[in-house]
């Protein structure tokens, strides 16, 4: 399950409009989705936002990967729905719990769009442009780089410990966690050794040579990026106006709670 979730957050090298957008524009998009989906809890606007993210996923040609990660997170969605449906005293509990589940889906889809269409190196560059220190941005890309390596290593250690008779599957939650100790300790120690080797390799390639550094990739904020950003800002402002100024139910007749 856990690996499937990652599928929808991994960069796919494709040639679509969304891939060509500047990461900063896409960050604005994420913030817009966050604001909009958090200020509304009614079903209709939530559906509109959700459908808009799906449209973008289709544009990004990433439907399959997205579906995989949605499947992976299905249990969480179901839990959000059930808990709210049975525990909310409100009369519109059904529509409210659907829209809360949708809110979760919408937010993870927005992040999914971002990570599937943004080359991590460009994201790091965007962070640097936003005044994040280079070292921190580098730590981010390196963390992504070493996820598969660590996963492979964890599997090797699990296999090794199992072949010596370690049982990982049975027992309750606490017992299982305890049983993972012989997996975590070697993994931890190896990671320290790895960190030192990585540092050594980086210094050997002139890391720390100068305070200034150049970059192979270049970010360019094009007219399309500006238009996309403006669109996000306008829609968000509109949403904020409807919610806090005009009043939601007066604006949209569709918004009456479901029976």
């Amino acid at each position: 399950m856990s690996l499937n979730i990652i599928q929808g957050f991994k960069f796919n090298r494709k040639n679509t409009v969304l891939h060509s957008f500047d990461p900063r524009a896409k960050l604005v998009y994420i913030v817009s989705v966050l604001i909009l989906s958090l200020i509304f809890s009614e079903l209709c606007p939530m559906l509109i936002i959700f459908v808009s993210t799906i449209l973008l996923i289709i544009v990004a040609k990433a439907v399959n990967e997205w579906l995989k990660s949605i499947k992976g997170s299905f249990i969480i969605v179901l839990m959000i729905f059930m808990l709210n449906y049975f525990l909310l005293p409100a009369e519109n509990a059904l529509s409210l719990s659907i829209s809360l589940a949708l809110r979760f889906l919408t937010i993870i889809s927005a992040f999914s769009i971002f990570f599937m269409t943004t080359y991590p190196e460009n994201f790091a560059l965007a962070l640097i442009k936003l005044k994040v220190p280079y070292d921190h941005a580098l730590a981010f890309t390196m963390a992504l780089r070493f996820i598969p390596t660590l996963a492979k290593e964890a599997q090797t250690i699990i296999d090794a410990q199992r072949s010596r008779g370690l049982e990982l599957e049975s027992g309750n939650f606490i017992i299982r966690i305890k049983r993972f100790t012989p997996v975590f300790i070697p993994l931890f120690i190896n990671s320290f050794r790895r960190a030192s080797q990585i540092a050594e390799a980086m210094e050997s390639r002139a890391f720390g040579y100068s305070n200034k550094r150049s970059y192979l990739h270049e970010l360019s904020f094009t007219t399309y990026d500006t238009l996309f950003t403006l669109l996000c800002i306008i829609l968000t402002s509109l949403g904020l106006c409807i919610k806090f100024y005009l009043g939601y139910s007066e604006t949209l007749v569709l918004a009456r709670p479901w029976p």
């Binding site: 190196e121 992504l144 080797q197 150049s214 192979l216």
Partner: peptide, 24 residues
């Protein structure tokens, strides 16, 4: 594996050169 730290071969080769602050 521990000496390859970037996400693509191209960036891997660029890493040292970026450190030296060479022009793009």
């Amino acid at each position: 594996e521990n000496q390859l730290i970037m996400l693509s071969v191209e960036d891997e080769i660029a890493f040292g050169l970026e450190n030296l602050n060479l022009p793009r």
